[in-house]
Design a protein around this nucleic acid. Structure first.
Lengths: 179, 179
DNA sequence: TATAAAAGTGAGTAATCACTTACAAAAGTA
DNA sequence: TACTTTTGTAAGTGATTACTCACTTTTATA
């Protein structure tokens, strides 16, 4: 029975994502989760151990989505789904995604520990192959360009809450690749 | 004569940008600037007053660049220079740009205070007019798309230190608009 | 040169930080 | 039921936080 442990994890994710990791104290978490502060350290050792646990949970669901893309063969579908990536992620893992984006601005030590290039290496390869299949002149550059766009879409989704406008832009970008 | 005041400003910009605002204490700043901690509060009132002063200085040089664009008439040159925006800004105002980007991840109060849509409103208008002049089918969407790309270029320049690769990508994107 | 204003310091402040410890309640197991 | 392990708490710890205050030094001005 670890309802309180789950409480700590859920509350921490929300607070770390929206208030910042450095700006969120363990006493704040304890109060919001309705537990004693000591319990946080009983379960996770220290504040960074708590962050580790949260990030590990969120990373899994992201990886599930990229492996889905690995099984897709149609290059146009791959590109289309890659553009959808931020939309889907932000819908189901908003706090996690926000947390991961924020970590590089919290402290240099935290930034160094969680800079997650590995997760995206796969996605880069898949996209470059898709552009090669479609006979683009410069597949590597096209991939980098699209990757840039996807990164931009992610940060836009964080800020802009007008979901219809976001979807319009996503479809506009798709129309550049699929006609 | 306020060498020490300037010292505080320079050191704070660097520390806030690279270590994070919340993660940078006033005692750290005092030590790095070679002044007593009290002097920070004598000059700037409180920590947020110091942040205000730093942001105000940096904002000026950004505005100088956008007003330069206002005097340009050739739409292709406008688009080209807009794509160059992150390159130029990052070269001369790297720490400031990094600081501004990081503020939305420090604390909700700080994020709300410094979300600077105003600076970019002008740039958005200029770009949309440029696309209209060039008879693009959907100038507003094109502007949003390019704006997304520029935002992506900014975050890329922060992380990727391979300047040649960055410039290659910038030129590749330019070639999409100017042939 | 006398005086007022500005710049600068060092030793404080209460509050908060991450974290520990000693102990109690609950749950699992024999 | 007896005993061990896990889960939980309350009250602390020293260090650090942003900030203040009484005071001295430097600079500008008359």
């Amino acid at each position: 029975m670890t309802i309180k442990r789950d409480n700590i994890l859920n509350v921490s994710l929300e607070l770390f994502a929206n208030q910042g990791y450095v700006n969120t104290s363990t006493s704040k978490i304890a109060k919001a989760a309705g537990v004693s502060e000591g319990l946080i350290f009983r379960h996770f050792g220290n504040k960074e151990g708590l962050l580790d646990a949260i990030v590990a949970i969120g990373t899994q669901s992201i990886e599930d989505y990229t492996t889905e893309l690995l099984n897709e063969n149609d290059p146009k579908k791959i590109i289309s789904q890659a553009i959808d990536f931020p939309v889907i992620i932000m819908k189901e893992n908003k706090d996690y995604w926000q947390l991961v984006s924020s970590l590089k601005f919290q402290s240099p030590e935290i930034a160094a520990k969680y800079h997650n290039t590995e997760i995206f290496k796969q996605l880069e390869e898949i996209l470059e192959k898709a552009f090669t299949k479609l006979n683009y002149e410069n597949p590597e550059m096209e991939m980098k360009y699209l990757f840039l766009t996807i990164a931009g879409l992610s940060s836009m989704h964080k800020q802009n809450k007008d979901e219809e406008a976001n979807l319009n832009l996503v479809n506009f970008i798709k129309s550049k690749y699929i006609n």
